[in-house]
Every structure is written in C-alpha cells, then in structure tokens.
Amino acid sequence: MVFPTTRWTLIRQAAASPTEESRTAMEELCRRYRTPVLQFIRRRVVQSEQAEDLTQEFFAKLIRGDLLHRADQNRGQFRSFLLHVVRQFLLDERDRLMALKRGAGQIHQSLDEGSVEEPSGSASAENEFDLAWARTLLQRSVDRLQREYSDQRSVLFETLKDSLDGAKPAAGAELAIRLGMSEGAIRVALHRMRTRLGQLIREEVADTVPSGSDIDEEIRLLRKTLEQRR
C-alpha cells in the first residue's frame, strides 16, 4: 500500500545535493518530455538544427543539476518547472551569444530575439508547450496500453483503438462477428481498455507532480489547455 515517492519529488528533495538516484530519475523524465521542449525551442530559434543543439545542451545542463536550484516550492509541477527553466536558458543563451557577437565581431543571427520577450508570442508558445506536453503524455500512455495488449489481445487493441476516446465503434455488429465476441463483450472490453488507459495516464502524470493529490489538478490544467485550442 505504500507507494514510492514520485520521480519529481525525489528530484526536488535531492535538489541541493543530487544523488545518483535523483539524477537517473531526472534523466528518465527528461527523456520522456524531450519533444515538448524541442518544439518550444524550435519556435524561438531560426535554424532548426540549432534547436536540436540547444535542446541537447539544455538537457545536459539540467541533468548535470545546474538548473535544479530553480525548482523552488511555488513551482509545483515538473511541467511548469521545465517551461520556466527552458525560458531562462534561452534568455541566458541569447545574452551569451550577444556577448560573443560583440566580443568576436562575428554574426550569430540565431535566436529570434523579438519573440522571447514579446508577451503575446510567448503566451502562445507556452500554450503550444502545454499542448505538446499533453500529447507526449497521452502518447506514452497509449503506447504503454498497447504494450500491455501486445499478447493475444493485440487484435482487440487494433480494432478498438480508434474508440478509446469514447467514440462509438463503427459497425458494431460487424465488429462483433470479426472478433468472435458478442457486442456486450466488446463493450466490456472497451470499457476495461479505457479504464486501464485512465490509470496509465494517472501514473504518467504522477511522476511529474509533487504528490498524489496534485494529479487531478494537473490533468484539469492540461485539459483546459486542450479545450482552449479548439
């Protein structure tokens, strides 16, 4: 009945003096949520290969623990922490490049300076970040579900996967014949699949929030972002 602390809690607890364990947890989290960060950086940098490099550097710094002191108490979730530090990182990077430019007299037109400070631009970029985050999160959960269904039930998963969001499976009767199950059984199977997916999403979210009670709040926040987009 005793659950382990979430990864994010582990990292925050060890922020002052990172342990091997907290570093591994950080690495793991970073690996999961690399895509949203990459996309965020891409939006602000002109050349896309530079975005790759910057992302790489950012995560290297993060895993080394250079940015961890910014994980203060009021920034609860890993998501908002990551967004905060990546913005700081880009600003620092821009300053550094500017200094370099002045110093060496070379042209490094790389970071889209305007958009970093422009409030409306950054608001939408944050939105995009959250959207990408939600997508990554769901993607991981669905993949895990698919892995769980990779045994004899893979056909079931393949058939029902489009209905995971609650859409009625098309041609229910035909489906029933194809799977050799009754329509009722299919409904139950789908319900089980959806329940499990819900659990998996929660597990994914749990790793990025400080404690179990914050999971619902985080999911609602992400949901709101998704609704605003539509």
């Binding site: 769901l138 669905v142 995971l164 997916l197």
Partner: peptide
C-alpha cells in the same frame, strides 16, 4: 483521438 476525452478518462 480526442485528447481531451482521454484526459477525462484519467
């Protein structure tokens, strides 16, 4: 899929 309703599942 409808991502919002997936989150509702959770």
């Amino acid at each position: 899929l409808n991502q919002a309703s997936l989150l509702d599942l959770a």
